[in-house]
Amino acid sequence: MAAKSKDSKAAVTKAPARVDSTRALAALQRAMWGLVSQPLTAANRMKPRTRDGRSTAAAAAEIAKPNDRLTSFERLEIYNRMYWFRVLDSLYEDCPGLRAVLGDAKFMRMAEAYLQKYPSRSFTLRNLPSRLEKFLREEPKWTRPHTALCLDLVRFEWAQVEVYDGGAKPLFRVEDLAGINPAKVRLALQPYLQLLQLDYPVDDFLIAIKKREALLRGDASNAPTRVRTSKASKVPLPRREKCAVAVHRMDGRIYFKRLEPAACKVLLAIRAGKPLAQALAAGLPRAKSKQLEWAGKVQSWFCTWMQLGWFCRRE
């Protein structure tokens, strides 16, 4: 297994003069990575100084050969630019809601800071935003004065990633109840289903953002038919309003479904492995008279959840 790096903002180490061992190979790769992973200048060029104040040109000259057209600095700069363009583009695509709140320029500054503190530890770019919520909790300066809204958005946008390609288990069927003591029934939820208790109605906000972006794009084509402009009206930021949302999928598409707070509590209790009776108790009022009132509602919840395939067989 790969060792964990001690410092994500690794200092630019000196390149070895020879690569005659695996250790020297690792040293060369660390030295090059130190340069390639340094943030770019505002003009998208490689920085003239390394993190520890050395001349980047001198550090690059120790690693890369110049040729008749490019200096060592310029040759490594190609990789430096490609690295940042790739990871920033990926995060940009994954976070349309957060971008809409922060604005593109502030979002890019935040994204760069995030990727310096938490560079990718996964083989796939899919997981790039996985620690963004943690980062924003640690460094709320990037999201002020909309930190609570941004945290909801980050959780919501990450939930969509998880829903898109999360695992599914065999569907639960009513026949699976046969022979089970009703008092001890435990249900299980599909692993991909995401349940979120939010302070802001970010589901509606995100739908509005996506509609606006689709309008700006014109269609789903790769080739823009015109230069992107911001003429379409800006989507107003949502007001604080507690809500519960299930992010789920059907036929390969992602859907958001609002849940009544009580329904969300029941589902969260089921997810926590509580027996059905306890799960219901977690969400429903205790008074017997109220319970009767709620019976029809609970029945319709379960009917819908079964139809949406949210229950799976327990292992």
Partner: peptide
């Protein structure tokens, strides 16, 4: 190619130094 260092991923296809030790590894 190479593309990860100490468990951090570049998501790029970075070129190799053409040495015998690198080839062996």
């Amino acid at each position: 190619c190479w593309g990860s260092v100490d468990g951090t991923y570049s998501h790029d296809l970075l070129p190799m130094p053409y040495t015998f030790a690198a080839a062996k590894r």
